[in-house]
Structures are given as structure tokens and as C-alpha cells.
């Protein structure tokens, strides 16, 4: 896997001109494994949406090095999925092979093996033929994780991947993330559990709309930085003035 980097330059992302991520510069280097941490409304999910191209920057730029947009695997926070949709677990997971099979490719025996392996990697052996309407929230999340696994992507974005997931599964999934890290994939994960971040993630971006710290995890999660992040006001100011920012 050739390492792929994501470089941000004066990136401002937001809604109705109000910034949710404000003047963020820096890089997720190729093969890095970074946790994105911060209070609610800090712009963590917005940042991921910006990187996958679902949200256009209000200012600044996002540059992908060594990959295209479509080479990014993205696990959204609450996937906007209809849980009653009559589709089987294996069909959802095999969507991860989209780039390889294309619209017309057949799911040969080898591909089906890959689907089975991905399901077993997230602890869902034997769930292939289950309709997704019979899954619990955590099981659906693991199904989507298996899809990310099959995407075999050089850049992987995870938005709160462990929500609704039990402790044992979380440690299995963390094992997967470490494997990706070992394979020099670039992993960016939005997380809330600071202990988990300290234990597993070498680098951290602490975000409170503006970046508070983006460095080695121990340094980034120092008490004074966390305090600064907590002081962020969640409210938009209705009559905020236009930002002169670094553009000037």
C-alpha cells in the first residue's frame, strides 16, 4: 500500500457561512493513525465530510496526495440507512467491493469468500443471509465496518465507529484498525473515549472548531488543551462579522 496523505490548508468548512471547522492547516501524513477529538459541535464530523468531498470548503483547500476521492473509505456516524430495507448482510458488505467489481462485475466464489472473511473479522460469521432488519444497532455498525474492510482503501475515515458497540467487539475492531496502521494505511477516526485514544492512537487532532492541538497524542491531550477545547461555545453567533482570517 503506497501511503496517501491528506493535506489541509487554511481549511474552513461550515454551514450557512458559519464556520464549523475554522482555519485548519496541517496534514494527516501517509500511514498515520490519528484520532480526532473534541466537544460536541467541534467540527469533527464536518471535517470528515469535507475530506470525502460531501461538503465544499468555504475557504482553503483539502489536497489528497497519492489517492483520489474514491479511494477513501468512509464510515459515517449514523449512516442514513433504512433499517427495514429488504437487503441481506452479504449484499451490504459486498458493496465494499464496488471499486473492484464495478457495476457489472459478478460476485465470484473468491469475492464471496472475501465477504465471508470480512464478516468473520467483525465477529459476524454466519450472518451472510440475514436481512439487515434483524440486526441490532451494534451488529449493523459491524456490518458497515466489514464493508469498509472490503474497500481495501489507502485512506480510512471512521466517524465514532464504536458507538453502540460492546467492549469485546470494540477491542476486535481496534485490532483491525491497528492492522490497517501496520499496512501503512492512513486512518483518521473521530472518537470520544480519551482513554481509548491515549492507548491506541499515536497522533491526535484536538478540535474545537479551531484547532487546539494537532500532534503526538500525549501532548495533544494535555489538561490545559482539553480545558481550552471545553471552553468553546457551541452556539453560532447570529450576527457574527465576516472573518478576515488568514486570507488578509
Amino acid at each position: 500500500m503506497t501511503p496517501a496523505a491528506v493535506r489541509l490548508s487554511h481549511l474552513t468548512l461550515g454551514y450557512r457561512r458559519h464556520p464549523a471547522v475554522h482555519h485548519l492547516s496541517g496534514a494527516f501524513e501517509g500511514g498515520s493513525m490519528t484520532a480526532v477529538v473534541g466537544p460536541n459541535g467541534a467540527g469533527k464530523s464536518t471535517l470528515l465530510k469535507g475530506i470525502v468531498g460531501a461538503l465544499k470548503p468555504l475557504e482553503g483547500s483539502i489536497r489528497l496526495e497519492g489517492v483520489g476521492r474514491k479511494d477513501i473509505a468512509y464510515l459515517p456516524q449514523q449512516a442514513d440507512l433504512d433499517r427495514t430495507f429488504p437487503i441481506r448482510v452479504a449484499d451490504v458488505v459486498s458493496m465494499g467491493l464496488w471499486r473492484k467489481t464495478g457495476m457489472f462485475g459478478t460476485l465470484t466464489g473468491r469475492r464471496q469468500d472475501e465477504v465471508r472473511q470480512a464478516l468473520s473479522a467483525v465477529g459476524l460469521e454466519g450472518f451472510e443471509q440475514r436481512p439487515i432488519s434483524t440486526l441490532s444497532g451494534g451488529q449493523l455498525q459491524r456490518t458497515l465496518f466489514a464493508r469498509v474492510l472490503l474497500q481495501d482503501a489507502p485512506v480510512i475515515l471512521l466517524d465514532e465507529p464504536f458507538t453502540a458497540i460492546d467492549a469485546k467487539t470494540q477491542s476486535d475492531l481496534l485490532g483491525l484498525i491497528h492492522r490497517w496502521h501496520g499496512e501503512k494505511r492512513t486512518v483518521i477516526a473521530v472518537l470520544h473515549d480519551l482513554d481509548c485514544v491515549r492507548e491506541h492512537f499515536p497522533a491526535t487532532l484536538l478540535l474545537a472548531r479551531t484547532p487546539i492541538a494537532w500532534c503526538d497524542t500525549r501532548e495533544a491531550l494535555r489538561a490545559d488543551n482539553l480545558l481550552k477545547a471545553r471552553a468553546m461555545s457551541e452556539r453560532f453567533e447570529d450576527h457574527a462579522r465576516l472573518c478576515a482570517g488568514d486570507a488578509a
Binding site: 470525502v52 460531501a54 474514491k70 449512516a79 430495507f85 451490504v92 458493496m95 457495476m103
Partner: peptide
């Protein structure tokens, strides 16, 4: 017959297909 998988995938998870193309 030609686009069945594409149509199902887009019906189930349009956001995914928007990123992956198609």
C-alpha cells in the same frame, strides 16, 4: 437486469454511491 445491483445499492445507501461513483 443490467443495473440491478447499482439500483439496489443506490436505493439502500445513496451517500455511499455518491462517494464511490455511479
Amino acid at each position: 437486469a443490467l443495473f440491478y445491483r447499482l439500483l439496489i445499492a443506490e436505493s439502500f445507501d445513496p451517500a455511499f454511491l455518491r462517494l464511490q461513483g455511479g
